[in-house]
Design a binder for these strands. Structure first.
Lengths: 348, 348
DNA sequence: TTGAAAGCGTTACCAG
DNA sequence: CTGGTAACGCTTTCAA
């Protein structure tokens, strides 16, 4: 067991209370005494005991707010499940987590959710999947600067805001990874199409596309690129647009499905009888997509660590507030998982 | 905050002590009272508070033993680092972890390490990377049956022993995954070679090979298979054997490096000038191997989650002993990571 | 400026 | 069979 406050107090011939005040710079300690206490503490590598600390604060729990968008998608459900588990775990450590979930992509709604958490529930930290717009950015900076509320973004980032860190995939890199795999499966022949629903205020999807194009069209590549933009991620909409794509594009060898609507894309491929001729790579490690791998419709699925995206923001914020530990990095980039037929058996 | 022992006690009109005894079946509680207490507890979803529990046991810490082999390899170093971090974290929860590390693959040494932990240090749980032999298996079963010591295997399993669970890769599946990728990069042409050092008592490597062969040689495959066995994992030994392989095998299109000695294989490929003609897939997500991806010598590296393999055995054992929670599964299969040029930037 | 005491949730121990 | 008390490490509050 590491050294405790009490032991330091005995070593220095003072009381626990004094040691506590000295180490946390709360004043009311004679400078010489404070210096000696700090010296002893660092010498013995003192770290506050989490269990004791949490217990002592049971009367005044810390409140952390969580704001999430797109909670209706299966992937975000997995993230949410993980966040709820972490919240339950943290409840034993005097941390309360308040969730605010949204299916819309409306910045005004997001900002009002944040405000409600701050004003009504007096949260002392915030984790969110931010919308990519100035309104939200301004709000986050205000919380940071004027209220000193630490913020962590997850799943999607807002790089210009003054958040503590981002936890999620490097979307540019995941687009590049798909391009590399696409070159492999198409043997660099024919035309490759990207299918994307252009969600306003949602930067992750745009970045995937950018990374993909950058890597696919390197000098010397024989591949043609066709970009398809569909109005939304509805299954039937994706189906129709994919059918049209298949009909109108001669020599189509690959499809990269960037946004949800995967089921429509797959059905169109199957119904047109070209599932084995046109290679398909999609995002999102969800049961339906893994099934498409198993039945040979999709070549690869790109996954990301839903567990970590749900749990890490909360545990980092709890550490930050309770132990005064800042996150060690600005970017916690989660795995870019390459899933194919034989490495998905143990998932889900 | 969840319901506490104290609150249950008040609801039932008894004292904390009685509730404690009732819930843990320690006897000395009138049956009717015990039944009522349990009913109230389940009704309110009582879970013991981890912080309080840990604190109350500070005077009598739990001791967990860890026995690891092959600690000299870079991958096992990463696992060990993660286990040490977890041990530090658990020290605040009244858990002490005692490590016994070995570079040899000697069953007699492993058994004596286990015995020392049990006899001298009185560990109440054990996590180990077992050698695959009857001597170790018998010892583990003895600990389980006669001493009631819970055991978890990690990184490599001993499926016939009565361990609680296994945490690590599904090695058969990872071999199959490599075969799938190998078919892709070689376009199913030519001869593919496997290079393996036949470590006695080490089942993980044999399983990788078995999975690979099973999947590569499916009916209709055009690929030829050449199995190369080298005496050990020494770099120079691997180098010489790879050079010979390259010289003697006409139409060699792929190499699967199963065991350490990777550096020798890569050097041979580079020195012979055939690095871009012969495709290479290796195991182990270590810096040297990722470098081989970056410089284009290796096509893929198969990684596994070193973090989880180090930390999960300890936290599951701590939960098992402190909270009486059995692991939920017999197999915790960690990721089979497919690493290629664009998804390794954020690693290491 | 400092110390002492209470309380957080749990277990262990001892007295009734 | 049951209840009370002390202890774990820490913060907070009150008194000196």
């Amino acid at each position: 067991m590491a050294i405790t406050l009490n032991q330091i107090a005995q070593l220095c011939g003072v009381s626990r209370g004094t040691v506590d005040r000295a180490l946390h710079n709360k004043g009311n300690v004679r400078p010489e005494v404070a210096a000696r206490i700090k010296a002893v503490a660092t010498e013995h590598g003192y770290t506050p005991n989490r269990a004791g600390l949490a217990l002592s604060r049971a009367a005044h729990p810390i409140r952390i707010g969580v704001v999430m968008i797109s909670v209706e998608t299966p992937f975000m459900q997995m993230v949410l499940d993980s966040a709820r588990r972490e919240a339950r775990r943290l409840s034993a450590f005097s941390v309360e987590v308040i969730f605010r979930l949204s299916q819309s992509l409306d910045p005004v709604e997001q900002v009002s959710m944040i405000e409600e958490l701050v004003e009504q529930h007096h949260i002392s930290a915030l984790a969110l999947t931010p919308l990519d717009c100035l309104l939200v950015e301004t709000k986050l900076n205000e919380l940071t600067e004027q209220r000193g509320i630490p913020i962590i973004t997850f799943n999607t980032d807002l790089a210009n805001s003054r958040r503590l860190c981002y936890i999620g995939q490097d979307n540019l890199a995941s687009g590049r990874t798909v391009a590399e795999l696409m070159r492999l499966v198409t043997r660099e022949c024919g035309t490759v199409a990207t299918i994307i629903a252009p969600f306003l205020y949602h930067s992750a999807y745009r970045e995937r596309l950018a990374g993909f194009k950058e890597e696919l069209l390197t000098p010397g590549s024989q591949l043609q690129l066709q970009e398809v933009t569909i109005p939304n991620d509805n299954r039937d909409v994706a189906y129709e647009h994919t059918l049209r794509l298949l009909r109108d594009t001669p020599n189509l060898t690959g499809i990269y499905a960037i946004t949800p609507g995967y089921a429509g894309v797959c059905s169109a491929l199957v119904d047109s009888g070209r599932a084995h001729e046109v290679h398909l790579i999609m995002h999102d490690e969800i049961p339906a997509n893994l099934h498409e791998i198993r039945r040979g419709v999709a070549d690869f699925v790109i996954g990301q660590d839903a567990q970590l995206q749900g749990s890490l923001p909360l545990s980092l914020l709890a550490d930050h507030i309770q132990l005064n530990q800042r996150p060690q990095k600005e970017f916690y980039h989660t795995d870019i998982r390459v899933l194919l037929r034989h490495n998905i058996d143990n998932l889900l």
